[in-house]
Amino acid sequence: MRHRQAIALLALVGLFVALYLWLHALGFGGAIKCGTSGGCETVQTSPWAVFLGLPVAFYGVVGYVVVLVVALVALRPAALAQRPWNVLLAGLATAGVLFTAYLTYLELFVIQAICRWCVGSAIIITLIWIVSLLSLRSPATRTDLSASPQQPDPRV
């Protein structure tokens, strides 16, 4: 349960980071708040800031919303003991990490500029990925202790 809660909170933070970048890409607000390096402007105005006709940040918003919704649904009492939710979250996080790795590669080696907001999002999705992998290793949460199998008495 702790893992899913952590994923939900991280996804919520990531959602607002992506939301800010997306709204900025749509023309809301002025210059992006990114320090004085200009890295965010360089990245946001590059041809790679648009993917399949939509701002890259839009995919971030959608991705984080999906992870957040799945994590919250998986936190329902009836779903707590179901392990497939962990697998689904790990799958979504892996897709997010791979897409982020591609974007980070573009920043470092193609655009040659670093956007702090993008780095923030990359850290968040990486943390979500790590937590989701840890959740795969942990035993399923028991919601009904009386229904759980009896443990053997360790005393001899």
């Binding site: 809660q5 939900a8 909170l9 919520l12 933070v13 959602l15 607002f16 939301l19 800010y20 709204l23 900025h24 809301f28 607000g29 002025g30 210059a31 708040k33 919250l72 936190l75």
Partner: peptide, 27 residues
């Protein structure tokens, strides 16, 4: 569990206000 949902709600409000403030102070 209720504490967790309260935390989610508070965090959402704080982050929403933060994004709004960032967009408002655009120059």
């Amino acid at each position: 569990m209720n504490r967790f949902y309260a935390m989610v709600a508070v965090l959402a409000v704080v982050l929403g206000v933060g994004v709004f403030a960032l967009l408002r102070t655009g120059g």
